[in-house]
Amino acid sequence: MSSEFLLCVSGLYKNFGGVQAVHDLSFDLAPGELLGIIGPNGSGKTTAINLITGFVKPSRGEITYRNKDITGQPPYKIVRQGIARTFQMVKPFYQLPAYKNMIIPLYSPRVKGMVGGKYGDRDAVALDLLEEVGFERDAYVAYKAASVLPQGYLKRLELAKAIALQPDLLILDELFSGLSLAEVAGTVPIIEKLRIEGKTIIMVEHRLKELFRIADRVIVLNYGQKIADGKAEDVMESEAVKNAYLGTE
């Protein structure tokens, strides 16, 4: 069976003990699409991402990427096929300077051959990538240890680490949360640029206003179940979504 979809998720279930974190989740993702996943706290958005990227193994269900079954594969194998993600809670290497943080994804088998193997070669690539996400080139900030960087830079570092892997599918887990309005405004063009480069993007977000401006399609989760799927404005009109966000009478 071959399809034109980049990623197909069908009948995905995950239980943590008695809690149904993800319940019968299915969706398809076309190449070049920007999909937003939204939902109230604890609705299973991050778990869904963890299932796709292999950090958590699904209880049931199937995930196919480029018509290949990737269900239950370890994260490093999934990344090598071109799915990169950022974490909601940033996970930098705190001891290392920001640009040295970039060396580790650049050392990944997926991109290792592309940037030259000699000692120090990757530093230049790392600085280029950091500049792309808004680390000023002439400022000292890229050389500072990650432990002293402010949250805004850490989020962008996280994004740069994912971009360094040259993914086809980029999954951004709450990239905008914890950022100021100005920082979000600075990040949106980066994402739009990635789209022009032809990358497919999934964004998990709480900042709906910013998301709706760029998303092609939005999925709404509640208690691990998909309750709406479609264009942003249509989705927010749906009765189920209003109930999930505002509560029922």
């Binding site: 990227t53 950090f55 370890p74 994260p75 490093y76 990344v79 090598r80 990169a84 993600r85 974490f87 996970k91 930098p92 290497f93 705190y94 001891q95 290392l96 040295k100 060396i103 580790i104 994804p105 650049l106 050392y107 990944s108 088998p109 997926r110 000692y119 990757r122 680490k161 360094a164 892997l165």
Partner: peptide, 21 residues
């Protein structure tokens, strides 16, 4: 760079995994 990956594992192993390593 090899050593950097080793130090990265000490710092945050999930993040290294997430780099396809």
């Amino acid at each position: 760079d090899f050593g950097l990956v080793l130090k990265g594992i000490n710092d945050n192993d999930r993040s290294v995994m997430n780099a396809g390593i």
